[in-house]
Design a protein around this nucleic acid. Structure first.
Lengths: 152, 152
DNA sequence: TCCGGACTTTCATATTTATGCAATTTGGCT
DNA sequence: AGCCAAATTGCATAAATATGAAAGTCCGGA
């Protein structure tokens, strides 16, 4: 898929760079050999529901829609706390055992968070396997999950 | 102050109406006999850090910066849970007793949530008095506070 | 009261963003 | 492969938003 890959890049750009205009996306993507016009970016932004936030420093920058983010994070937290059984790590893998029936739901929620660290997620009835992109990222993800579990 | 009052109105409009363009603000404010141009609205939006959110239904609408909102809500929740002592209501008043020293902080946090129900907030060393706009709104506010206290 | 400076607003316009439409690409399905 | 429908994109431009500069407003102090 072309569009989705591009939108992945866009998401990545969001977290790293400070993006003030849609043309910035065009430039930055072009630097990664992805050539699109501002029109397409405008549509991507609509798709992804990104917002242009007036920043404290007086400028503007594009950002993830925190509303959604918080909503799913809340659900994720609840599900995780409800269904959590145990937890193990090996290499770039994180395996979460959950109460029977909760695997798919939890996997879907994790998916929808679009964590940068995650290569893929996979849920069966009582397990969720998260495949990270690197060892370092595995650690980071672990911490995130810890936080979700402990955080009130 | 003229500007601040206008921004109050803007905040109010946000919660009620579905506002798609800055010109909508101009029209709605004009309906309340506040005459300004789009340029001013643009600056207000920058001031207030409002964002134009692509909505699921395919359009756009202006909204509060949820990031901030969530951040202060978190702080509010923590403070409230930490310092809370007791709670009473009479007419349009809600009185929260807190541990000595926490009144002003809690009052400030409540202020910064800009709840629609609230006419004013007032904190001394160990008390916060919230004055609501109506009896109905007092009930609503009470529920919000209950939720903050019980919600994990 | 009158002045000066800090804010605020408007006007005009530059800049940025969204979108209709035609062209192109994609993904089945036979 | 070859065709169709649906999805995606670019182009051109409309629509919306941001902003410099001039004009107006609001205080506080001489």
């Amino acid at each position: 898929m072309k569009k989705q890959e591009r939108q992945r890049y866009i998401k990545r750009l969001l977290s790293s760079n400070e993006i003030e205009r849609q043309e910035d996306f065009v430039r930055l993507l072009s630097a990664e050999n992805i050539e699109v016009t501002q029109a397409t970016i405008s549509r991507d932004i609509k798709d992804m529901q990104l917002v242009k936030v007036p920043s404290v420093t007086g400028g503007y920058h594009y950002s993830m829609p925190v509303q959604k983010q918080m909503d799913t994070e809340k659900k994720l937290k609840r599900t995780l706390k409800d269904a959590y059984v145990s937890y193990a790590t090996q290499d770039k893998l994180v395996l979460i055992k959950v109460l029977p029936g909760n695997g798919p739901a939890l996997a879907a929620l994790l998916e929808s968070m679009h964590y940068d660290e995650v290569f893929g997620t996979l849920g069966d009835d009582a397990n969720v396997l998260i495949i990270c992109k690197s060892l370092a990222m595995t650690l980071e993800l672990q911490q995130k999950i810890q936080r979700l579990l402990s955080d009130n």
